[in-house]
């Protein structure tokens, strides 16, 4: 049984715009799953339909085997949603928002209070529990939405760009929190534009573009498709021209920086060996772009 099973899901808006064209998707229980795609690809529409915020046109959705057409209420009780846009009352306090959400799920008040405290503490918001939500910082508002989505202890947590606009330190602490949550057994579906985030956290991935799933595989399988990677090398001494006579594709960026493309049948060791022979010392090295980012751009461009 899948945590989420989507069959032939279609969404056509009243304007005639087709947001989802017959998509199929399986998410295993316990997975940390990435759903990626450019803006307007259909990610948020798919999530909206799963969470019952948007009516589907056609198709089947099962959440832990429960057909949403048969018993959406039971399916909803298994889902926690962290939407892309802020969607809590600006006038309620932090604890009121989380407590009320527990009430909507029928959680008894005593347990709701306990869960509210647990999740607000875990997300570093306990000290702010009596503060009005509108007065929180952007990062705190994002964390509040995570606490709210978790208060009924869902088995499937869906996060729609949870780290958008969040500083790197906070983003890393959120990654750690989500990783621990997943290890504890919660299935997580994540959409993000930070591909480093998806590569670091997720084991499986689907890429959606123009309402169609164009890739659905494990992260490893997907990254194996990358036939070349570009690295930037910082040199200890200036050089005037790229070293000649190599099988590598070098480009001189400035007199102390070169860019090298390493293909699948080559190794970085060979690059260093070649440079060492020519007494060129490398002080540091970094990837030009995230590997997943390269693939993402290639795949979505192929789909154009």
């Amino acid at each position: 049984m899948y945590a989420l099973e989507i069959r032939n899901l279609t969404k056509t808006y009243a304007s005639g715009a087709c947001a989802l064209a017959d998509i199929n998707l399986n998410v295993e229980q316990g997975e940390f799953f990435a759903l990626l795609g450019p803006n307007g690809a259909g990610k948020s529409t798919a999530i909206g339909i799963i969470a019952s915020l948007i009516n589907k046109t056609n198709g089947l959705i099962k959440v832990f085997g429960i057909d949403t057409d048969q018993d959406f209420d039971r399916a909803k009780s298994l889902i926690g949603l962290v939407p892309q846009e802020l969607n809590f009352s600006q006038f309620e306090s932090v604890s009121e928002i989380v407590l009320n959400q527990a009430g909507y799920y029928g959680i008894p008040r005593r347990l709701a209070r306990k869960n509210t405290e647990i999740f607000l503490r875990q997300l570093g918001l306990w000290d702010k529990r009596n503060q009005r939500s509108r007065d929180l910082s952007g990062g705190m508002k994002r964390r509040l939405m995570i606490a709210r989505a978790l208060v009924h202890e869902p088995k499937l947590l869906i996060l729609d760009e949870p780290t958008a606009g969040v500083d790197i330190e906070l983003r890393r602490s959120m990654w750690e929190f989500l990783h621990n949550l997943n290890v504890a057994g919660t299935t997580i579906i994540l959409t993000t534009h930070y591909l480093e985030e998806a590569e670091r956290l997720c084991r499986n991935i689907a890429i959606i573009n123009k309402g169609e799933i164009i890739e659905h595989s494990s992260m490893k399988t997907l990254l194996a498709k990358l036939h070349a990677e570009i690295f930037i090398l910082d040199l200890s001494k200036p050089i005037t021209a790229v070293p000649l006579g190599s099988e590598f594709d070098f480009h001189l960026k400035d007199d102390t920086t070169i860019e090298v493309t390493v293909y699948m049948d080559q190794t970085i060791n060979d690059v260093f060996a070649f440079l060492s022979e020519r007494r060129i010392q490398v002080t540091s090295m970094r990837g030009k772009s995230n590997r997943l980012e390269e693939l993402f751009v290639n795949l979505t461009q192929e789909n154009e």
């Binding site: 019952s52 915020l53 209420d73 969607n87 928002i97 959400q101």
Partner: peptide
């Protein structure tokens, strides 16, 4: 107001009849 601020979604995603 709940629609405008979108916090009506808090109820819509829940199993509240």
């Amino acid at each position: 107001g709940a629609k405008f601020q979108r916090h009506i979604e808090e109820i819509l995603v829940s199993p509240t009849p």
